[in-house]
């Protein structure tokens, strides 16, 4: 009984972890790669522009 509950929780956690890290990576990537967007808004600089602090 307890093993079933624990194993269910473990599997659920694994799935959530995988999905969470996938979403985080995608989110980070979209921020890094959207350099074209950094011209319009302040503080929206992508990683490359921040690094170069050359956001116009």
């Amino acid at each position: 009984m307890y093993t079933a509950i624990i194993s269910n929780i473990i599997v659920a956690l694994i799935i959530l972890l995988l999905i969470g890290s996938a979403i985080r990576t995608l989110h980070r990537q979209s921020k890094e790669e959207s350099c074209a967007s950094c011209g319009t808004k302040k503080n929206s600089a992508c990683k490359g522009c921040k690094f170069a602090d050359s956001c116009h």
């Binding site: 011209g39 490359g48 522009c49």
Partner: peptide, 12 residues
């Protein structure tokens, strides 16, 4: 770090 120059697709 590789990116693009703003506005042009020239690699930065």
């Amino acid at each position: 770090y590789v990116g693009n120059w703003p506005g042009v697709t020239v690699e930065k």
